[in-house]
Computed example of a mutant assay.
Amino acid sequence: MPRHFVGLDGANALPTGHFQMTARIVRDLVTNAATGVVHGPAGTGKTFAVEAALEALDALPAVQRPQVCVLTFPSRPTMRMVADQLLRELTGTETPSSRNRFDLTTKLTGLLATPMRLIVVDEAQRLNGDCIELLRHLHDHPRTRFALLYVGGDGCWEVLSKEPMLRSRVFRRLPFSSLAPAKVPALMRRYHPIYADADAALLLDVDASYGHGTMRDWAVFTHTAASLCAEQNLTTVNEATVHNTYALLGGGLRD
């Protein structure tokens, strides 16, 4: 499994619907050499779920296992930047032999013909229309065969869906969202041992005050709370532990 945020010892991957569906979507994209989008607010577990799904591909038979290429671009990348980075990832070379965009596209078309690949574009909300069109063109080319997964945070689907040529080709789409408050106590008890016997009302208070239904915030809170529990030889968080955790995380001491 991918490493938990902040290296949290003892944490378990939660089998949420989003987590399980991400694995299904990645498999479907690879099987059909299709395009998909996984998007949602920061901290809701997209990256962890995608990384776990990519690792699961290693269990496939060699003939079915794609070569995975993950791309992340800075803010406002150009079409040329996308082509350059994709070529470097596929070939391992530092500098493309040609500075001509059309030569690069021809080279990429040949590289993406075989073997089967999965191209993952992280922070996809940073792409502009030209970049999206380049990737769509490569994916639609009759010589190429690869799966394409866009992963992004706030605004990702709004950016991608503005391009009709891409939107009509999205085979799978999964919007992530925050955890529903009613599900938080049961999920957190599975997430980490310090919550196994914790009072449900206390866990709901943590979610309302700090967690806000996002796994990243819960991971930060849990890392600190688990340290305090260990210092005090506690197996379960209590109100004092929670209040001291708030203080260490900038929430102020509560008497």
Rank of each mutant, 00 (worst) to 15 (best):
H4L: 13
L8C: 11
G10D: 04
P15L: 00
P15D: 02
Q20T: 11
M21R: 15
M21V: 05
L29K: 02
V37S: 05
F48C: 01
A49R: 01
D58W: 00
P61H: 08
V63E: 14
Q64K: 13
V68H: 03
L71W: 07
F73T: 02
F73N: 04
S75L: 10
P77S: 12
T93H: 09
T95V: 14
S98E: 07
F102A: 13
F102H: 12
D103N: 08
D103Q: 11
L108N: 03
T109E: 15
L111T: 03
P115M: 07
R117K: 15
L118E: 05
V121F: 01
C131F: 00
E133T: 12
H137L: 12
T144R: 07
A147Q: 04
L148A: 05
E158M: 03
K162T: 04
R173W: 01
S178H: 11
P181Q: 05
Y191K: 03
H192M: 10
P193F: 06
D199N: 15
D199L: 06
L202W: 06
D205E: 15
G211E: 04
A219G: 08
A225T: 08
S227D: 11
N233A: 15
N238T: 12
N238A: 05
H243C: 13
N244W: 13
T245K: 12
L248M: 12
L248C: 06
